[in-house]
């Protein structure tokens, strides 16, 4: 029996979009609505105000913990998430958790999975996780190795589009035109240059692993459902979670979820899932907006909007978003909202 579809709830004021709702049956509520949710990462962590990664990690892991009836072990790459959650003598984790290195979280997860298998612990599930730096750059070899071997690991990448904890340097996930400490907003092509960077989800799909998905912290139910779907499968699975970073992006701490929503609604960040290397579903844009709506609130793109500004660059970014929309079919065919 499949779980109730929690991404399409109608006629309940906030329907599918809010975290929960007193009017919903408990099984229709998101994991995050539960009074007794795991809080895999608990209070007292040292993430910046409005940290999208802290939020995304709790969303994803609590969902995984629920799906595995509490039996989850996580291996974490070096990065913001690791640093802010475990400064001695305090840890915010409430699940068994290990941090080894920046570039080896997928392999450590493999080792855990192998150990569990050797010990006959089929009940315990393994999560590998890291930021975009630890995943798409430093740990990419280990990630690919974990994929191709078919190891039983769900890997979660929290993508805040740069090395934020070390002072906002560019990563392979930094978007074009974004200013970072290593891609200054100067010259003919200010900020990160176009044509660089990679899509880890698409590369993951090229491994033809059982499950690949993207999600954002703005669509909690979608994220939870993807984690649940991934947890129903075995073998390597990859979920790429878009997590805005107020510090690195120069955005208001209160805008974290809003920016994630705008990234999806503008087509900048396509939200989809793929099974065995084939796209099997996309999250449609509900109210399409121009990319400018997404770019403007972020100081890392401020050089595009000064005087005289760079409308040509904004147009290139819009073209990229339009390509995403066409490529993934992000627009509703008919206006059936949800």
């Amino acid at each position: 029996m499949s779980a109730p579809d929690k991404t399409r709830i109608r006629f309940y004021q906030t329907g599918s979009f809010a975290v929960g709702g007193r009017l919903l049956d408990p099984e229709q509520r998101s994991v995050q609505a539960e009074g007794e949710r795991t809080n895999a990462i608990t209070c007292g962590h040292r993430a910046c105000q409005g940290c999208g990664e802290a939020l995304g990690a709790r969303y994803a892991l609590d969902a995984a913990v629920r799906a595995a009836q509490g039996r989850v072990i996580a291996a974490n790459a070096t990065g913001c998430l690791e640093v802010f959650s475990t400064p001695y003598p305090e840890t915010s984790w409430q699940i068994p958790w290990v941090h080894s290195l920046f570039g080896n979280a997928p392999a450590v997860a493999t080792g855990i999975a192998a150990a569990l298998k050797a010990k006959g612990r089929e009940d315990v599930r393994v999560i590998g996780q890291g930021g975009d730096g630890g995943t798409v750059d430093i740990g990419f070899g280990c990630l690919s190795g974990m994929f191709e071997r078919g190891d039983d690991v769900l890997y979660l990448c929290y993508d805040n589009e740069g090395y934020m904890n070390t002072g906002v340097q560019r990563s392979g996930a930094t978007p074009p035109a974004a200013r970072t400490a290593t891609t200054q907003a100067v010259g003919a092509e200010p900020g990160n240059v176009f044509g660089q960077g990679k899509s880890a989800p698409l590369i993951a799909m090229a491994h033809e692993i059982p499950y690949v998905a993207t999600a954002t912290v703005a669509e909690l139910r979608d994220l939870e459902q993807k984690v649940e779907a991934a947890m129903e499968l075995h073998g390597p699975r990859y979920i790429h979670v878009f997590v805005p970073c107020p510090l690195g992006w120069g955005s208001a701490s209160s805008d974290t979820i809003r920016l994630a929503r705008l990234a999806k609604e503008t087509g900048i960040f396509p939200v989809f899932e793929a099974r065995d290397g084939v796209v099997s579903g996309v999250s449609k844009i509900r109210r399409r907006l121009p990319v400018e709506e997404y770019l403007r609130p972020q100081r890392r793109f401020a050089h595009l909007f000064g005087d005289p500004g760079r409308p040509d660059v904004v147009a290139r970014i819009q073209a990229g978003a339009d390509r995403n929309i066409a490529r993934f079919g992000l627009l509703e065919d008919e206006g059936e909202g949800r």
Binding site: V98, N104, A107, V108, G111, I112, A114, A115, A118, C142
Partner: peptide
């Protein structure tokens, strides 16, 4: 048996897998 043999892509991964396995009690 019981034993798991993991063919890894690099020595870095080899030691990392060993780290994970050892931390998980194997």
């Amino acid at each position: 048996s019981p034993c798991e043999f993991v063919n890894v892509e690099s020595e870095f991964a080899a030691m990392s897998v060993a780290i994970g396995a050892s931390a998980a009690g194997a």
